[in-house]
Structures are given as structure tokens and as C-alpha cells.
Amino acid sequence: MNLSLLICARISAVFLICVVFFGCAVSESSGVKGDTPVSWSPAFTMPELVDLSYDSITDIRNFPDLISAPWYAGIGVENKKGEKVFLSSCEDLFHEYGPKTHTIKANEMAAYLELKVMCETTRLLINSDSAKYSFIPDVFLDEFLPKVWPKEIAMTISTLELKRISDNSNFKVWGDVMTIDRFEKDSEEKATYFHDGGFQEVDVLGNGDFNGDDTNDIFVVVRDHVTGGDYFNVRLFVLSVNRKGDWELLESF
């Protein structure tokens, strides 16, 4: 009897050690486990861009309403077929736009890009799943971000210079392409990165599992500004990070 108890105790001890060891190892290497729901930040401004009488959206099940809701104003564009059309909702935009769509009035392009990116983010949030795993650091908008985010984040206006950067395998990350000489943080979701020709505003709009790999991805908008010129661009990125902290660009819009 004493021997049986001793054996049981030893087996239990071994079992306990295994649980502690492997349990700890699993939680350290797999990030946060359990369902991480799709979520969005105050930087996601689609609810403010639609008709002002629209109530604030708090439930993602209402997001399809943002797709059909009228914008604060309509914008004329040249569609994929080269026809002049008037867009007044995300639904209109998805039906008519292409990657090179321009507004009929050149000075309306900035406002169009803002609407386009927020419409695409709405669609991303609707179509994303909750994630089982999340390796997204609690804090990542900091001065070191240009050393880890992909080079596609960098602002390049010249077509041929962009091609040279893309073809150059020595350029891997954002900071390889441009030197960020100053950083200002407004919140955990918003920061501005300054370089000698201008600055880039980075807003984290939300997160969700974009590609069905059970891992949480983030949706980021980058607004590119120059100093002393009128160039402006708004770009949307879907980024993923693995357990080692390596960031990957999944999609850009």
C-alpha cells in the first residue's frame, strides 16, 4: 500500500512537472490564446464620414449599414471604364472603383482617398474573423517601428525610385528606405514619423484574422505628407506579426 502511494505520488509529481513545463512553454510561445474578437479604434472614422444623423456604430453586426449609408458628400470620379460617375457611398465605390481611380476634380482626390480607405477598412473588419492567437505587442507604435515594419510603408513618390527600392534586396524594412529623424506619439493607436522631406501619420484602425490562419492581424492607415508641397496619399495596410516579432505585409490598398 505504501509502495503504491509512493508510486502514485511520483507519477503525479512527474505529471505536474510536465504540465507546468509544457504549459508555460506553450503560453510563452503562442502569445495570447483564446478568441480575440475583431475590434476597431477611434481612428476608424467611417461612422463620422457617413450622414451625420447616423448613430455611432458599436456593434460590428451593424457595419454593413456603413457600406450602404450615404457619405457626408458625393464625389465625381472616372470609373474603371473611363466613364464619369458620382459616388455617394461605399457601395457605389466598390462597384465603380479601381486601383487607379481619379476624381473628376483633381482637388477632391485627398477627400476621395480618405473615404476609399475607410470604406475598405469597413469591408476588412466585416470579413475578418476573430483570432485564436495574437502576437501583437501591447505597445508597438514607438521610435523603433521603422526598424521592423516592411519597406512598403516608406513614402516614395517617384515611380522609378520606388521600383529601384522594390528591386533592391538590401532594403528590407521601412527604416532602410528613409531615415526617420523624429517620432511623436499621440496614443497607442496613433503616431507620426518625421523624415527630412515630410512626415507619415500612422493610425492603427483595427484588428482581426484577415487571412484565416487563426492569427490576429492589424489594419493600419498611413497618411503621407510632404513639406512645402501638396502631395498627399492615404494607404491602407494589413500587417501580421509572428511569435518571433517578425512583421509581414499581407495586403495593401
Binding site: T156, I157, S158, L160, E161, D196, G197, G198, V226, T227, G228, G229, D230, Y231
Partner: peptide
């Protein structure tokens, strides 16, 4: 070009141009 990109970007980021 300079209206659009500004003096600093033109000077620093368009070397071949």
C-alpha cells in the same frame, strides 16, 4: 514637380531626376 513634392523631397529623393 516642386508644387507637388516640395523642395526637400525633390532635392533628396529624386537623385537620377
Amino acid at each position: 514637380i516642386i508644387f507637388n513634392v516640395g523642395m526637400t523631397d525633390l532635392r533628396n529623393n529624386w537623385p537620377k531626376f
